[in-house]
Design a binder for these strands. Structure first.
Lengths: 168, 168
DNA sequence: AGTTTATGTCAGCCTTGTTGACTTTCCAAG
DNA sequence: CTTGGAAAGTCAACAAGGCTGACATAAACT
């Protein structure tokens, strides 16, 4: 019953049952724990946490981005971000240059030290993902990305797509 | 150079580039926020949070499970779980029956009230996932699940697979 | 009888999120 | 040139949900 896929009509819709959706939910939960496990392991012992990782990631991703941009991407309050950013700047991982056009803005850059940590964290996280990708092949990876994108809130999807292109 | 895909040999491996892996990481991050957004919305205002949702979910999923089992699935300390479980029991959402064979164990069940809340939360979360699944089709969903499963820690993958079957 | 297991609980700490209030700096429009 | 609003920073207080360590009880196992 329910041969893999590819009939003509409505695809049998067996993949939309309550049970299948539950499995998807659980898969998402367990996989996310794996997803964060490796960087968390590196961070513990340092004075940093997952929030610092996220800041480093997105500053690396959009060099010279402003605080406001970062707030929009991360979806936290400026007080919450500031606590994290403060320590990263004080510890010399992030540099905040006064904006050239608009001097109210701060353009954020990773220092050498910041880049080094970001690289370590990303390497760890990518290693797991690379192994998973390799294990399942490009076809499955494409499906993975499609489903994730379809699950995002529209605002976040826009943020996500903006990142894929270039741009600070 | 580097035409799309599908040569004979090793699939060109373009899907394993740093950039592709980074996109995957970001997709995971943004999608997870969407994944939790709807139940969180329901919970806020009640005295409960995401931790209560998880407990309700897995108690529903494995009726009569023990505290120890739940601890293993959730991967938190008993003190942390107890805080959550305590309120759920006191509020009459969860019933803890003394084990029949081993009286040290507590078998956990949802009450009517607990089931009702669990259903609301799951409905909200499933709605988003159903929409996403429907938008991308069964082929993509299969890939989605494959990648997630490949990303899990081995222990968690075992937990996950155990849930798929039956069993308390 | 003594040990181990399952559970519960007290106390205290940390990270990371929140709100609210207030300041400084600076751009831009009137 | 003044004034309103935007960008950023900061202080204080609080909440959720993790954590550790210590200790208590009941039941099972040896």
């Amino acid at each position: 019953m329910a041969e893999t896929a590819g009939q003509g009509g409505s695809e049998s819709l067996l993949f939309l049952t309550d049970e299948q959706l539950r499995k998807g939910i659980e898969a998402m939960y367990f996989a996310y724990r794996g997803f964060t496990a490796d960087p968390d392991r590196i961070l513990e012992g340092m004075d940093y946490g997952r929030a610092h990782h996220r800041a480093l990631h997105f500053i690396h991703r959009s060099r010279g981005t402003t605080v406001n941009n970062l707030l929009a991407v991360l979806g936290v309050t400026k007080q919450s971000l500031n606590r994290v950013l403060r320590t990263l700047i004080d510890d010399g991982l992030v540099e905040a240059r006064v904006g050239r056009r608009d001097k109210r803005e701060r353009n954020l850059y990773l220092t050498e030290k910041g880049s080094a940590l970001e690289r370590d964290l990303t390497d760890a996280q990518q290693a797991r993902m690379r192994a998973a990708y390799r294990a399942v092949g490009p076809q499955a990876v494409q499906g993975f990305r499609q489903v994730l994108e379809a699950m995002m809130d529209p605002d976040l999807r826009r943020q996500y797509q903006r990142l894929k292109e270039g741009g600070a």
